[in-house]
C-alpha cells in the first residue's frame, strides 16, 4: 500500500541526503519526494510517498525519527487530505494543432505558459490521476519534455501537521 508522509525537517544542508540515503540503504521504495521550506525558514517540509505494508511503514517512520534533523513525521494516508502535483509538459504544437491542444488544456484547467514556433509548454496541477490523464491526452501530439514536482499534501480542515500542534483541531 502507498503511504503519504508529511515530514518536518531542520532546513540544514545535507538533510535531503540523510533522508534519501536512509530509504535506499534500508531498501524502502520512494514513489515520490517533494521538499521545500515552510513559513519558518529554519524548517523544511517533505512530502514522501512510500510503498510498503504496515510493518515496513512502521520501520520507515521509526528509522526516520532516528535522524536528528527530522522533527516530526505524520502519516496522513488515512486522513482526509488535499494532494497536488505540478507538471510542465512541452508538446509539439504545429500551428494547425494548437486549437486542439488548447481545448485539452481547457478541459484539464491547464495553462499555456510558453508558445514556441513548433512547441507549447503547458502547466497543470492536480492529483496523480489527473496528471496521468492529462499526460495521456497530450501523448498523441508528441511530448518533447516533461517535468513534475512529486506530490505535496496537506490535511483538510483545521487539522495540521505542525511542530507543536499536530493533529489538534482548533474547534475542539
Amino acid at each position: 500500500m502507498r503511504h503519504t508522509l508529511a515530514v518536518l525537517v531542520e532546513n540544514n544542508p545535507g538533510v535531503l541526503a540523510r533522508v534519501a540515503g536512509l530509504f535506499s540503504r534500508r531498501g524502502y521504495n520512494i514513489d515520490s519526494l517533494a521538499v521545500g521550506r515552510t513559513d519558518n525558514p529554519a524548517i523544511s517540509r517533505m512530502t514522501i510517498v512510500v510503498e510498503g505494508d504496515d510493518r515496513v511503514l512502521e520501520q520507515v517512520t521509526k528509522q526516520l525519527h532516528k535522524l536528528i534533523d527530522v522533527i516530526k513525521i505524520s502519516d496522513i494516508t488515512a486522513d482526509e487530505y488535499v494532494d497536488r502535483e505540478l507538471v510542465l509538459i512541452k508538446v509539439s504544437a504545429e500551428p494547425e494543432k494548437r486549437g486542439e491542444i488548447m481545448q485539452i488544456a481547457d478541459i484539464f484547467r491547464a495553462r499555456i505558459v510558453d508558445l514556441g514556433r513548433r512547441t507549447m509548454i503547458l502547466e497543470c496541477t492536480g492529483n496523480e490521476g489527473k496528471i496521468r490523464a492529462f499526460e495521456e491526452s497530450l501523448k498523441p501530439y508528441g511530448i518533447k519534455e516533461l517535468v513534475r514536482t512529486g506530490k505535496i499534501a496537506m490535511l483538510r480542515g483545521s487539522r495540521y501537521t505542525n511542530i507543536n500542534t499536530n493533529g489538534t483541531r482548533e474547534d475542539d
Binding site: 545535507g14 540523510r18 540515503g21 540503504r25
Partner: peptide, 14 residues
C-alpha cells in the same frame, strides 16, 4: 567525510 559517515554515525556536522 560527513557524506561518507552518514550511515554510520548517530549524527554528524560539517
Amino acid at each position: 567525510i560527513t557524506g561518507i559517515t552518514i550511515p554510520i554515525t548517530k549524527h554528524n556536522y560539517l
